[in-house]
Amino acid sequence: MGPKFSIPTSNRVQSCSFFSSLKNRSPRKALLDQTALHQPSILATLPKPPDVLFIISSCISAASTTTQEFLVFKDPEDKVHPSPQVLTQVFLMTYITKSVDFNITDIFNCTAMTPEQRILLGADWVWAVLEKSTKNPKIQIAVQVLHQPEREDANRTPIVAETSSESIQIAKMEASHKNMCERMVEFCTLIGDDCYALFLLLGKKDDEDNIYGVLSNNFGAADGKCNTIDRALIENFFRGSQYLHTPLGMMQAVLSKKVGDPLTLLVKFS
């Protein structure tokens, strides 16, 4: 994992092609498929899997609940407005606190990105299922928090020393050819099918008060099929959707997936 660490109207046909590609991705070679049949799922290798999954999902749900309280906060005097950075930090700090309390960090690790890593990789943090013996990551979930555009616009802040440092400027130059969403998809694609991109939406157009997510290890299928992977494209996944996973359902699906299979899920976190 390295260090423990609008869709325009003209793109509509391309976007449809992208959504189709996620569902119709061609299977890996027969040899890989045969190998996958004889390999146990990651779920089977965890100690007391139901208990572990319940604890992990409980930590994620607790972070979602606390963040939602800040998300829907309304100051009667209209003076206090939690910024996007605050909301992201509230989610991350609540999750970390719960995971430490439940002592699951040696099974399901959480690594917050440095400002430079966030710019280069597009992720705010990375969750990882760790091998018991080596503590190497077996499955990784890179998370990028997407805030409502109006909240981001209302909380523009002056340039501070951290964001104007030389290392930050170098990182921005290195990553200037792609937007944040595309950088995270590229990062996950380079790692492989066991790295998932999770776009965490703190509110969406038709429901500003709840937290949703789109998770996939197959966003790379968008290459050459649509111009931009951005918030508008992510929100399009929810159009006509009939089933949303819970955090527990998300973790069960990720850990029970066969090697080499594509997986795309819609999740409601609050």
Rank of each mutant, 00 (worst) to 15 (best):
V259P: 13
S15Q: 14
F108V: 08
S6L: 13
V80M: 02
N24E: 05
P247W: 03
K205Q: 15
M251R: 01
I168D: 04
T94Q: 10
S167H: 04
T114H: 15
S41Y: 06
D153I: 10
N103F: 06
C195S: 03
L202G: 07
P27K: 10
L130M: 10
T35E: 13
P158M: 10
F19N: 02
K204H: 04
D261Q: 02
A30T: 12
S15Y: 10
R183C: 01
E166C: 12
K4M: 13
L53D: 01
M250N: 07
L266H: 00
N11D: 14
R118Q: 11
L22T: 10
A222C: 14
R151D: 15
S41L: 07
L202W: 00
Q14C: 13
W127P: 00
C110I: 11
I139S: 01
S6N: 15
F269C: 00
C226G: 01
A123L: 14
S165Y: 06
A197E: 08
V129W: 12
K74L: 13
K178T: 04
V90P: 04
Q34R: 07
Q14I: 01
M1A: 07
E182N: 12
P3R: 06
L53Y: 15
P247I: 14
Y212N: 00
D230I: 00
Y196S: 00
M1V: 10
N103V: 03
I56G: 05
S167Y: 13
I191F: 09
S83R: 08
P8L: 06
S64W: 02
C16P: 00
A128M: 08
W127A: 12
Q148L: 03
S270C: 04
E208Y: 11
G249R: 06
G203Q: 03
K225G: 02
P40H: 09
L32T: 03
K225Y: 02
I229C: 08
Q242Y: 12
D33F: 10
K48F: 13
L120R: 08
I56Q: 10
D78G: 15
P149Q: 08
H147C: 05
E162W: 10
L71M: 01
P84E: 02
R28G: 07
A221R: 05
N136C: 12
K268N: 02
D153A: 08
A221S: 10
G122K: 07
K48C: 13
S21D: 15
A30Q: 09
H38P: 00
N179Y: 11
A175I: 06
E186I: 13
S20G: 09
R183W: 14
L255Q: 01
G249Y: 04
Q140N: 11
A36K: 06
E235Q: 03
P76D: 03
S164D: 09
Q140L: 04
V100K: 15
N179S: 11
L130A: 05
P3M: 05
A30P: 00
K79T: 15
F238V: 05
T114G: 12
R12T: 09
T228Q: 02
A63T: 12
Q34M: 08
K98P: 00
N136H: 07
M180I: 11
N11F: 09
E152T: 13
